[in-house]
Design a protein around this nucleic acid. Structure first.
Lengths: 341, 341
DNA sequence: TTGAAAGCGCTAACAT
DNA sequence: ATGTTAGCGCTTTCAA
């Protein structure tokens, strides 16, 4: 029985057009040495047979891969969805194809990295997990890649991120200057470069304003988990003395706390002042508008993509210690107000 | 100069371990014919050289591809992000790798489909564009694929979608039974199977309730465009007699109208009753909560993925006329109320 | 228990 | 202007 989905090869085309395989290859590549007549015949037969060249074979012959691996911890996060779209667009308009891998733990990450290398992708754009396996590190350090947002020191590669520390510092100062002292911070694990920087920013705000962080409350947890944010928020609200203000350090946490506040009928800024992290469109119309730390994330991803693809095209090494910082800014809306009393 | 990022081949391992290439292949595949001693030596050398087998070569030898192409019109849409995540998860746990392509027009779609076939992907999961090129159709009909959400009759393949028509019908009936007559529908183009079905559902509600749709207003436009939704909404609101109720037919439109209503300070259900399409988490806390048509989209994607991967693994043809319907339901929240007066 | 050789589909160097 | 051949890295006969 005829096998389903059998694709035609150059050999098939050659046989039917009664020429050699190399003539087929040349004709389809519009090689000037082939006569117009032969060309048209070959092309016709090719179309007729639905011939689509085998990229695998081409790449084995030395052609560059057009596959870019993108490794993200989470795609339902507005942050990462934006990145995926921007990079997809970027790849697409430069002749590359994006392979998306979701990995939230070191094991899955290792597996996917190996697979991408095994498929001889052209390069990898990665938002690394907190503690990548040694194996992953060795692999990546010998493979073209670039880090996005999170930064692992052990990777000898370029990094594109945001000024997390300054940004959290600014947000916290905003709350402090409104008179708040019992301020809670719910953010990602400090094992992450981003989590650490954001926490440092939170702390720095107190230092720079000469205020002791005695009443600050800090809660850390896994990123990309809505569950953690919800639990942390409920915990805070159930305390005898709940915080008068809250600033978050990840998008997922922001989404989670908005949900909880809504569920429990707690409103900002009357009951608590809120500074959210990230700028999902809906943050504008949560309550009276959420005061947020806005990230130019699309820009960052595009910049990163262009830089990376350019270096790949030029066959330049991508393990330079290049780093690029995008500036996040505080957007004040209705969810923050001076401390009452 | 030594080339950067040169990966070791089986040949390199063989030379260093002083065995033949075939022994290397067998040792790494844990072939029982190879002695334990040789095996361990080969493995050690492989690790030492950072050897990662070349998947391209393997596939040329007949190994199955592990690449699944996913073609979506848009990834920032909550709908599609959910699909991407569900499928990525599904692929990942079945040894496949997801390649993401964003294509919103027939030309880009054709290009990406060709590329995926050229890369000899194992199969393609596609949310087709409205009017795919003939070329794309011919290609896909000879390649394992499955349609998601939107359905093109010309594709002789399985389809996984939702009961769009019933769902819009139910939502519209809800508004009609509240006494609304001047009801607007803003939805996707009727050239899309989904757009058409949803519009038919809207109309059917009137028929089944024995009401003439004299005062119904229908606006259609490109899907995946927030801009269109915003323009349509503004247009409606600027009319001398704006509708008393509105039902939307795409997620993007829903997001857009929420934005506009918020901007213009128009509130539901006081000024207008709203039934939104889709169930992004933030819909719960828009105003007094948005009445929505909820889709079990994650479920749908997972079902689709499992079905497809199973058929690919079993090397069964996927061009059966299988179709699977997921049921969407109306969730009533605060944005709809009886017509005043 | 291991090695040598063929071949997957393609392109490029080398004939004719 | 076109055909022949070699080889990309791997697996899988077939031989030893």
């Amino acid at each position: 029985m005829k096998q389903p989905y059998k694709l035609a090869t150059a050999r098939d085309v050659a046989d039917k057009a009664e020429v050699s395989v190399s003539t087929v290859g040349r004709a389809l590549a519009d090689d000037p040495r082939i006569s117009a007549k032969t060309k048209s015949r070959v092309k016709e037969v090719a179309t007729q047979l639905g011939y689509v060249g085998n990229l695998l074979a081409r790449q084995m012959r030395g052609a560059k891969s057009n596959l870019i691996g993108l490794m993200l911890p989470d795609i339902r996060n507005h942050f990462y969805a934006t990145i995926a779209e921007a990079l997809s667009e970027c790849c697409s308009s430069n002749g590359y194809q994006l392979a998306l891998s979701i990995a939230n733990d070191p094991e899955t990450e290792a597996r996917h990295v190996t697979e991408l290398i095994s498929a001889r992708a052209a390069g990898i754009v990665i938002v690394p997990t907190a503690n990548p396996k040694r194996e992953t590190q060795d692999l990546l350090n010998n493979f073209p890649h670039v880090q996005l947002l999170r930064r692992i020191e052990a990777y000898n590669s370029a990094w594109f991120g945001i000024n997390d520390e300054d940004c959290l510092c600014e947000g916290t100062k905003h709350l402090l200057s409104l008179g708040h002292r019992r301020i809670a911070y719910i953010g990602g694990s400090r094992e992450l470069s981003t989590g650490k920087a954001r926490w440092k920013g939170f702390r720095r705000a107190f230092t720079e304003m000469g205020i002791e962080p005695d009443h600050a409350i800090e809660i850390f947890g896994p990123p990309s988990s809505t569950r953690f944010g919800a639990d942390a928020m409920n915990d805070l609200l159930n305390r005898p003395e709940p915080p008068t203000a809250l600033i978050t350090g990840t998008i997922r946490v922001t989404q989670a706390i908005l949900e909880i506040l809504h569920q429990r009928g707690i409103s900002a800024p009357d009951d608590i002042s809120i500074v959210g992290f990230g700028d999902a469109p809906e943050f504008k119309w949560w309550g009276q508008g959420l005061t947020t730390l806005c990230m130019p994330i699309e820009d960052l991803a595009t910049t990163c993509g262009l830089w990376f693809l350019f270096h790949l095209d030029a066959e330049k090494p991508t393990h330079l210690q290049h780093s690029s910082l995008a500036r996040a800014t505080l957007t004040i809306r209705g969810s923050t107000a001076p401390l009452a009393g």
